[in-house]
């Protein structure tokens, strides 16, 4: 049975805007790395990377329109990785 694609199309302008945001964020992260020397350096860099990834996921990969199973699976995967990392650090941090 054919399932017609129901989600609306995207505008080229919109996609270009996302690219602009991604490039701008890249510049911000380079600047931050150069200028900010505080303890949260890694957090800031990863935070910006996370933001960029979210833009790609939502606007280029259209994660939201893919349905709850897909979005839920994505969150489950990322959560699994985060938990693996955290549990590993329960060893590494306290040796």
């Amino acid at each position: 049975m054919n399932e017609k694609e129901e989600s609306p199309g995207q505008s080229y302008g919109g996609l270009l805007a996302v690219l602009g945001a991604l490039l701008a964020l890249t510049a911000v992260s380079v600047a931050a790395a150069r200028l900010y020397t505080g303890p949260l350096r890694a957090g800031v860099a990863l935070g910006i990377a996370g933001l960029k990834s979210a833009l790609v996921l939502v606007f280029f990969m259209r994660l939201r329109e893919a349905g709850p199973a897909v979005a839920g699976g994505f969150l489950a995967t990322v959560l699994t990785l985060a938990v693996f990392m955290a549990l590993t650090f329960s060893d590494v941090l306290y040796r």
Binding site: Q10, V18, L22, F60
Partner: peptide
């Protein structure tokens, strides 16, 4: 990033 835009 540009190539991702191009694919989309």
């Amino acid at each position: 990033l540009a190539s991702s835009f191009a694919v989309a």
